[in-house]
């Protein structure tokens, strides 16, 4: 199933089944990245992501609007990020959708180390990824944290040689997201 379609279906069914707690919605999130290059450190974060997780099937879909990344070292840098590297005009979102590998019951409180396996799409290019995550289930919701690397070349993002000392080829991403049942709207 196409990740975008999965995402739409999950969100749509989320709305349709608002009374059923099987699908939880991302209530808040912080997705940040750091590029550590020899001459420059670039960091930005995004709090406008959306996502859903289906407790029954353990499937998930997350969508990150690229233009909502804030931080950077200068407005021009942010502009270059969107115009030249992410080409946000053409590919406005990064998405990650798939399924949690481990047979855990996300409805049971506890702390779990799991693998999220799925299709990670960035800059229009998809890569199959297995991303280790920490999942903490409490009465407040399902909190998911993860730190992983993304090789820009894997997603067709080319770093011009003239700036290769300022933009790292491998960027570290951090995710901190909280999911709540879709009927628990703020």
């Amino acid at each position: 199933m196409r990740p975008v379609l999965l995402f739409i279906l999950l969100v749509a069914s989320n709305l349709a089944d608002a009374q059923e707690p099987a699908r939880w919605r991302m209530e808040r999130s912080v997705i940040s990245f750091v590029s550590e290059a020899p001459l420059e450190r670039i960091a930005a974060m995004n709090t406008k992501s959306t996502g859903v997780v289906d407790l029954a099937s353990r499937s998930f879909a997350v969508q990150v609007p690229m233009v909502e990344f804030e931080g950077f070292n200068a407005p021009l840098q942010r502009e270059h990020f969107n115009e030249n590297y992410m080409v946000s005009r053409v590919w406005p979102h990064a998405t990650f959708s798939g399924r949690i590998v481990e047979s855990i019951d996300l409805a049971v409180p506890g702390k779990y180390s799991v693998r999220a396996k799925g299709r990670f799409v960035l800059h229009g290019e998809a890569q199959e990824r297995i991303i280790p995550c920490e999942v903490v289930v409490t009465e407040d919701g399902i909190r998911v944290t993860s730190t992983f690397d993304v090789a820009l070349a894997d997603h067709g993002i080319r770093i011009p040689r003239v700036v290769h000392q300022k933009v790292a080829a491998i960027v570290q991403l951090k995710v901190d997201a909280l999911f709540k049942p879709s009927d628990r709207r703020p």
Partner: peptide, 11 residues
């Protein structure tokens, strides 16, 4: 045969 039935790893 999966993790729930005793497989060491689902993947």
């Amino acid at each position: 045969f999966d993790g729930a039935s005793g497989a060491p790893d689902n993947l």
